[in-house]
Design a protein around this nucleic acid. Structure first.
Lengths: 291, 291
DNA sequence: CGGTATTCGTATCAAATATTACAGTGATTG
DNA sequence: CAATCACTGTAATATTTGATACGAATACCG
């Protein structure tokens, strides 16, 4: 064993050695990381079956990690667990030496995303979220969803969930040829949810303007710099999209979508429950896997 | 075993039964309470010697507590430990005396999402992300994206970005009728990216298995409980999806998608730049609004 | 003071578990 | 296309561990 001055945690050690592992060993390692450290506190065979591998694979894994046996491995596991339980909850898992610039891209990205989320919700009036939620709960209003080239995925996610809890929801992203028809059908009670982020798409903005002109209520998801469509929007939900990458992040926008979905779902859950049960019944092929 | 409406914790159970114990049994019980639950996570003999009693005493203790054996006792112990490990990562960071229950749903949801993100990236070997990135950079490999009912939005987002930086990317979500054809075309260099989350979809899993059988490399995005498709996946990226809502959160999974997108994009940026410029040129009619 | 009952540890046994050997399988390379 | 190599599960083995019977020790009661 190497005697580092600051011994790495087991999680770090595993992730560091990860590439040296074989495919099946990785599966076992991942199972452990996924529910650490519980997965390995029982017997090796139990751990193995839970990970979907054989016991010897688990044994080979702990051997590769440098332990002299499964017992040794578990001892180390419990040792760390004890330390973690005693100090209430500080840096659970990762060390303090994690210098900002040294951290892997993955971690920097994640930190940035969390900042985006926090900055987004902090600046967002709760009443705005609730107002949009209330709007979408109203089944008398037809709901149209529209996203741009990249934000169409957000519209799609929103549509999948909204459609599960209420009717009269349509995702019209992309089908710009059919837009005029939708426009014709639009009544003043209806709601158009628009996703428009940096590099704001002219056609999307134009459609929002037209819909607004016909009396529809426009709900706009955009970034902190605000799409021009904000001018005709009844509600604007702006989210942070900063990244260390060349693309913008949709994490914070997605969070807003999910929150509103949750609000709409949880409110009047009783009347929705039946619909979902029924819907799940129709999807018997989506069953959970037996064991 | 016991089906109490409000199951008492083990600690409560022990203190309640404390008086019924004999002197040395009490010594063992105290040892456990003193550093709970670590003391009993090892072998019964280890626990005994640590408590200064003999192994049979420990066995008699767990018997008196109503367990059917030491294994049963440990199972319960781990069960509680798991619950305890999952919760205590809350009030980390933000609001002063912002009471947990008082905070608006929006903020609670955001905090949970950030936890999900952090817990996801912490447990994810950086090499795994990079391996997937490397796979997708290889333009000789055709890439197929497949998501389920709700996760199709992730596939769509991934597709939009991947397709912007390379060719031979197809999103085949939903079009299950056409799957056999795609299967026929699949070569052993090809990559199938599967999104499969809780309520794992049988048809998606089946397709992943078939693709794997035909030699394709399967990359699986799933949750911490892992889709059965993990068995045939060459790479598994599991993300946390916990929420305070009735739906699962796709925030952490989206983050992983974005990180990989960033890696693929940033790597070999030069060769990609031309493609993007060209692509943007073709979309001049969709472009930025004057203002 | 003697007898009895409870308690506790030692020794033993049986069951569960880790470990190792081995062979089948698939992938890789020449 | 053959041959080799690496990988992984099955099965056999060795070891550990939980469980139990028994006897020594102590406290308690008559």
């Amino acid at each position: 064993m190497t005697d580092n001055p600051t011994p790495p945690t087991l999680v770090e050690h595993i992730t560091a050695s990860f590439e040296r592992l074989t495919a099946t060993e990785k599966r076992a390692a991942r199972a452990l990381l996924d529910n650490y450290p519980m997965a390995a506190l029982g017997t090796a065979a139990g751990f193995a079956s839970e990970a979907g591998v054989s016991a010897p694979t688990v044994l080979r894994l702990v051997d590769k990690l440098g332990f002299s046996g499964y017992a040794d491995f578990q001892a180390r596991l419990r040792e760390e667990l004890e330390a973690r339980l005693q100090s209430p909850l500080q840096r659970s898992g990762s060390g303090p030496r994690e210098s900002e610039s040294e951290a892997h891209f993955l971690h920097r990205y994640a930190a940035q995303a969390c900042e985006n989320v926090m900055n987004t919700v902090r600046r967002l009036p709760a009443t705005e979220i609730e107002a949009v939620g209330a709007l979408l709960m109203d089944e008398r209003r037809r709901v149209y969803l529209l996203g741009g080239r990249f934000s169409a995925a957000l519209a799609k996610s929103f549509h999948a969930h909204l459609h599960a809890v209420r009717g009269n929801v349509q995702d019209i992203s992309g089908q710009s040829a059919a837009w005029p028809e939708y426009l014709l059908d639009m009544r003043s009670r209806d709601v158009l949810v628009v996703f428009d982020f940096r590099r704001y798409q002219k056609d999307v903005i134009g459609f929002a303007e037209d819909a607004s002109g016909r009396g529809a209520t426009v709900v706009l998801f955009t970034d902190q710099w605000r799409s021009p469509a904000a001018k005709v929007a009844g509600h604007v939900l702006s989210a942070r999209i900063d990244t260390h990458s060349r693309w913008d992040s949709a994490v914070a926008p997605l969070l807003l979508v999910e929150v509103i979905t949750a609000l709409v779902t949880d409110h009047r859950w009783d009347s929705i429950q039946a619909r979902i049960k029924q819907l799940e019944g129709l999807q018997t092929q989506l069953q959970r896997h037996p064991e």
